[in-house]
């Protein structure tokens, strides 16, 4: 009952957020400078043909009509047609979404696998050598932009050690091994860069939990350090870390356009870049919408995970 309430409330918020996202996406693309018809027809187009095209695209109708039209289309699953590619936006996105998803999931996995144990280890050995070196490691990761890490990874693992290809994308259904070997470097570079934040969060969250009264009691019950850290502390400490992980995931998804460029990874990031460069308004709108949706859903997933880890939310307790 309470869990229903919880989900109901979250979904309500998402619907409201989504409404604002469509408004912003629509507004932003319409303020962008540059006449679409002019862009399509080139500088030599006549006044008449420009006008004809604008009418055909519906660009000379009032903005609110265009907005309502767009939203109604969205609700029917129609995101419009790309001006640049001449294909339905939905289809373009559907093709690239899984690729970006694959990269983002792999990068987040790398980051979590590296950072959570490291953060726990650092917290348990607070202010001692392991803590300092773990923090240093994480700090190095965050100290350079992601695309630079991409280049460093290519240089070290592809060019010098010749372990992995320098880039490109192969569908896993065609060639699973080839696909995975191409995934390692971009996912590793991105994951490494994401490590720092999650690790710092894990560390400080663990430190806070380790000073809780129930940890004291666990020690007074004769529990070993291992049980205390893994059973009593981590399950509590991970709760705030989940938000950070969800945030980093959506960042990995939409934010690292450049990394896809560096590794020739034909995902949503590169599509967005192309769309912006060619003033492809329906495509830009579609990309913004999809990235916003990813943000919203990963946060929604984080909230559900919260509920999984924290029984106080699961059962609607409020203290």
């Amino acid at each position: 009952m309470s869990m229903y309430n919880y989900v109901f409330r979250r979904v309500g918020f998402m619907a409201v957020t989504l409404f604002f996202v469509t408004l912003i996406a629509f507004a932003v693309t319409n303020i962008l400078p540059g006449d679409v018809a002019l862009l399509i027809l080139g500088p030599n187009a006549t006044e008449q043909s420009l006008e004809a095209l604008q009418t055909q695209l519906g660009l000379n109708r009032p903005l609110y009509v265009q907005y309502i039209d767009w939203v109604v289309g969205l609700l029917q699953g129609n995101m419009g047609e790309s001006l640049r590619f001449g294909e339905p936006v939905a289809q373009l996105i559907a093709e690239r979404l899984p690729r970006s998803m694959m990269l983002a999931v792999a990068a987040t996995l790398v980051a979590v696998v590296l950072s959570v144990p490291l953060g726990v280890y650092a917290a348990v050995n607070q202010n001692e050598a392991p803590d300092v070196s773990a923090s240093m490691f994480a700090f190095v990761g965050i100290s350079m932009p992601i695309f630079l890490w991409g280049l460093v990874f290519i240089l070290v693992f592809a060019v010098w050690l010749n372990l992995f290809p320098t880039g490109g994308y192969v569908s896993p259904s065609e060639d699973l091994v080839g696909s995975l070997t191409r995934l390692v470097l971009p996912a590793g570079a991105m994951g490494f860069a994401l490590t720092a934040y999650i690790m710092r969060m894990t560390r400080s969250s663990m430190l806070e939990v380790l000073s809780e009264e129930y940890i004291n009691l666990a020690r007074a019950k004769g529990m070993s350090q291992r049980v205390i850290v893994l059973r009593h502390a981590l399950k509590n400490a991970i709760i705030p870390v989940i938000t950070v992980i969800a945030f980093q995931f959506s960042y990995a998804f939409g934010g690292v356009v450049v990394l896809e460029e560096v590794f020739f990874w034909p995902g949503i990031g590169r599509l967005t870049l192309t769309a912006i460069q060619s003033r492809d308004i329906p495509l830009i709108q579609g990309c913004i919408l999809v990235v916003a949706l990813i943000y919203m859903f990963s946060n929604f997933a984080a909230d559900l995970l919260y509920a999984y880890f924290d029984p106080r939310i699961r059962y609607g307790g409020d203290d």
């Binding site: 009264e213 129930y214 004291n216 399950k235 509590n236």
Partner: peptide, 13 residues
């Protein structure tokens, strides 16, 4: 037997 019943039990167990 500790002092504070509110904080001495692990909330996730």
């Amino acid at each position: 037997i500790p002092q504070d019943p509110m904080s001495s039990l692990n909330p996730v167990m």
